[in-house]
Simulated assay, not measured.
Amino acid sequence: MDSPQMISGSSANFSAQISGGSGNPSYKFAVYNNGSLVTDTLYSLNSAFSFSPSTAGIYQVYVYGKDRLETDAYSVMGSTSLTVFNPVKISNVTASGYMYDGKPITLTSNTTDGSTSGFNYRYEVYKNGALVSSSDYSISPNYTFTPITYGTYTIKAFVKDNLSINNLDAEKDFSINVNKAPLSAALPLNYGMTSGDVTNLQNALIYLGYSISSATGYYGTQTKSVVSSIQSQNSLPVTGNVDTATLYVINSMLATKAGVKLLNFSTLPLVYGTTSSDTVNLQNTLIYLGYSISSATGYYGTQTKSVVSSIQSQNSLPVTGNVDAATLKVINNMLINKPETKNLIF
């Protein structure tokens, strides 16, 4: 027998040898699974036997031998067991990270079926048809890559069963969208200056659909005009320069385009002791951010006040326990910068 374990669909090969007698032995083979006959042969001079199990299970393989001069059913008998596994499958892949350009994303493949011998994993990452990152086969199901630019990335995940003789046993292809990262800059960014922060600002504005010919890094009239327009549309002082309030608006636009749902309340402040749908949204957001609130009841109680007070304290805001405009900006910034996990099920 080649091996006591194998993957279904492959060929299992057996051979037998009988000594003694007249020197003219005959052989017969029979295979059982759970007591049921799967396949057998007639007596012949052929001492080799092959079969391909189509399902997983523990098979019993019997060989019967006799001299051609004998009339008994058999004179000798031997048996062995064969454990058969279904081929490994990739059931899902998770992509964990910020899903922003310049931020690492970790891919993790999860498998079903396969043998007990373990697996090896490999990944290829493509953008616009070009390979941008890849790994060699490894026992780790994880692979981390950092997308340099935003856009759609095609991922190929491969897995190989250590028991298998194939080059690979399963492959899954899928795509993830990488968005433009929120801006982080030394403020203010002013008309007439040149810097890498200005380049990032211009790339972000181009990504958002504004008319800037290219990201040169020079804060010229095109950039100033776009920033002035954003300030005007958001009731900010129109200076044409990027200050903290303007940066928050631009990052909110980037987050919205990335599918992040930011909080926007009809009335501020949200205060302790009140009940509203805005409080439900606040509580659901705080739960999503990992804070300890038992449920989103809509009532602004002690749990909600305690969490809001903690956020205010950690961000050098007046600790009132109520949500004002400054506190809302902090919570939305936390949403903008929260990593996410995409579970891609096949």
Rank of each mutant, 00 (worst) to 15 (best):
V307C: 04
T39F: 12
S79A: 11
I148Q: 15
A48R: 14
A12T: 05
F158I: 05
S91M: 02
T111G: 07
L268G: 00
G151N: 03
L254M: 13
D278M: 03
N162M: 04
I212A: 00
T279C: 14
T221V: 09
S225I: 15
Y74L: 12
Q60R: 09
T304Y: 08
L328V: 08
Y210Q: 06
Y62D: 10
I139G: 15
R68T: 08
L187D: 03
V132M: 11
E124L: 14
D40F: 10
M253L: 13
S235R: 12
N343W: 04
P147G: 11
Q5E: 10
Y248S: 12
Y210H: 12
E124H: 13
K172M: 15
S232R: 08
L205E: 02
N24A: 14
S22M: 07
Y299D: 06
N34H: 12
S214C: 05
N337T: 14
Q233P: 08
L45N: 15
A181T: 06
L131N: 10
T341Y: 05
A12D: 00
F145D: 00
D40S: 15
S211R: 10
S211K: 13
A95F: 04
P141D: 02
Y218R: 04
L205C: 09
G78N: 10
I230E: 09
G151Y: 00
K127C: 04
D72E: 09
M193A: 06
T199D: 03
